[in-house]
Structure formats: C-alpha cells, structure tokens
C-alpha cells in the first residue's frame, strides 16, 4: 500500500510524472527533515550544553553551537554537585534508581510470565474474570494508591526506602507484565502443551521446557517496558522517599528547583543526561521491542 504514489504516477507520461514525483519526494523529505529537527534539537541542546563552559552558555544563550569542549560539568554532576544540602552529585540517585528498577523489573517480569502462563494454559473456572480484574491495575491512577501505600509502607517499615518503591512497582507492574505475557502465550498452540502432558510433563516442566524457551521475544518487550517505565517514574519516588533515598527523577526535580543552581546549565544538562541515558540506551539497543511493547500496551 505504500506504493500508491509510485505505481499510479507511472501510468502517465513519463516526463511530467517524474517531475511531479520529484516534487512530491522533495516535499516528503522536506517535511520529515523539519520534524526531525524539532525532535532532535532539544536533545542536541542538552548534549551541547553538558560540554560547554557555563560562562559561554551565559553569554551566547542555551541554543548555540559549542565553542568550547570540556567534560568538567559531567564530573560535577556525577560526583560532587550539591542537591538539597547533600553534595554527592547524581551518582547516589543513579544507584538508587538502579537499585529500584532492576529488582522491580526482574520480579514483575517473572511473576508476569508465570501468571501469563497460568492464565493462558491452565485456565480454570473464573480465570478469565480474574484476568480482567488484574488488568484494571493497568489503568489505576497512582494518586488513588498514595494514602494506602503510605500506610502499608509505614506498617512494614519500608517508608523512605528504595525497597518500598520496589514493592510498589512490582505490584503495579504485575498487571502489565501479566497482560503482555498472557496475550503472547495464548498464541502458543495448546496441542503442544497437551502432548507434553500426555508424555507426563507437569506444570513446572512444561513451563521450563516449552514455555520459557519460546518466551524471549515477549520477555524482552516486558523487561524494556518495565525498565523504562520504572526508571522514569516520578510520583511514587517523590512521595515515598526523601533526601538521599530518592530515585533520579525526584533528584532531578530537586536539582533544577533549588534556586541557587538555576543558572548552572552545564551541570544541570549533564545531570539530565545522566538521568536519561539508561532508558535511551535501552531504547536504542532494543528499539524494535520497545515499539512492540508500546503498541501492545496501547491496543489490548
């Protein structure tokens, strides 16, 4: 269907057609380029400013080609910049985010795979209803859960702790991971499972020998979805942690909010990039799977 423009034009006189086609092509690429610039320029601005000297930024404004190149801002942003009275740079919050994101991603993905396997291959009476109930978690606004979580985290001693955030993200993530895996496992033929059962394979054996080996595509999608989502989350981070326990998104807001640093664009740019690099890496390395997760998450 992409060749409408091409195939129908060829029916007419070649010269006129090819001239018109040239124009159409020029407009298409022109528009794409304009949009691409709009999308890329903000990223370039941050990357440039993270390497420009602050006096130069103050003189020439934020949006300008770099005339100097110096990595000092990165060192400051990573190691010793002061955020809310703590002068340890972003590294502390970066670790917090890793410490939160990696376990929460692994646990929620594993649970999602198990749940998806059960809800597609070991269906029981009422399992579809239960699945629908779990799905509702996808739509829940975080605000509804704030007070209950505050209470529960206090009770189990996980207030102001990265592990409290792990718990929250696992519970919230289960609905997504279950949805992804269940919808994927449904397409694995039941006959395969039936044959295995006749051969005497049980629940776990079928999972490890048949389902898991078929799972890499959906597990990659799920891991990418969970990793970027949890890394980028802000509301729970800012509500349930403070000071040195905060994840990187909350620390970034604290950094850019503190009045004294308002003009240190070089360090703030480096800090912003430190916060953006992990999900960007995941995106550039796993682009295809990222998009797949996006479209599956949207159209259920």
């Amino acid at each position: 269907m992409a060749d409408i423009a091409l195939s129908r034009v060829e029916d007419h006189e070649a010269v006129r057609a090819s001239r018109r086609r040239g124009w159409t092509r020029a407009v298409i690429y022109g528009l794409l380029t304009v949009f691409a610039l709009i999308y890329v320029i903000p990223l370039l601005v941050v990357v440039f400013n993270a390497f420009r000297a602050q006096p130069e930024i103050a003189r020439n404004g934020l949006i300008a080609f770099p005339q100097s190149f110096q990595p000092d801002a990165w060192v400051a942003a990573w190691d010793n910049y002061c955020i809310g009275g703590t002068c340890q740079g972003m590294k502390r919050y970066f670790y917090n985010s890793l410490l939160m994101t990696i376990p929460a991603t692994i646990i929620s993905t594993l649970l999602g795979a198990m749940n998806g396997y059960i809800l597609s291959k070991w269906r029981f009476k009422g399992s579809d209803v239960l699945f629908t109930c779990m799905l509702l978690g996808v739509f829940m606004p975080g605000q509804i859960a704030l007070m209950p979580w505050a209470f529960i985290l206090g009770k189990v001693g996980l207030s102001n702790s990265v592990y409290g955030l792990v718990l929250i993200h696992v519970v919230q993530g289960i609905s997504f991971t279950t949805l992804f895996c269940r919808n994927y496992y449904v397409s694995i033929p039941d006959d395969l499972i039936k044959a295995a059962r006749i051969d005497g394979a049980g629940f776990w054996r079928i999972f490890f020998k048949i389902i898991l080996p078929l799972s890499p595509p959906i597990l990659i999608v799920t891991v990418i979805w969970q990793f970027t989502g949890i890394w980028n989350e802000y509301l729970f981070g800012v509500v349930f942690t403070s000071g040195t326990q905060q994840p990187i998104t909350a620390a970034l807001v604290a950094l850019t909010a503190s009045g004294t640093t308002a003009s240190a664009y070089d360090v703030m740019s480096a800090a912003v990039l430190i916060g953006a690099i992990p999900p960007l890496l995941v995106y550039f390395l796993g682009g295809k799977y990222f998009v797949r997760g996006l479209t599956q998450g949207a159209i259920k």
């Binding site: 970027t228 890394w231 998104t249 916060g275 999900p279 996006l294």
Partner: peptide, 8 residues
C-alpha cells in the same frame, strides 16, 4: 522522546 521521562 517516549523513552525518556516526562521529568527530563
């Protein structure tokens, strides 16, 4: 842009 946070 979808990969990075709204905060960024």
């Amino acid at each position: 842009p979808l990969a990075v946070s709204f905060i960024v």
